[in-house]
Amino acid sequence: MKIFIEKQNKNIEKKFSGKIKDLLKDLKINSDTVLVVKDKELITEEDLVSDKDSVKILSVISGG
């Protein structure tokens, strides 16, 4: 699947099927610090994604 990590301004490709919370765990990202968007819609950590999907991981922390 295609993943855009906003905080690092980085696009990655990863083989993954499962819940968003497990994807974040794999990527070592604390779920309290991000929002995940798929097809321009906000999705939750309990939502399922598959290899065909493309998601954006947006950082909730901004500013200084």
Binding site: D32, T33, V60
Partner: peptide, 12 residues
């Protein structure tokens, strides 16, 4: 309001 709630509100 948590940072995550504010970010979700602004996005929505």
């Amino acid at each position: 309001c948590s940072e995550k709630e504010v970010a979700a509100y602004a996005l929505l």
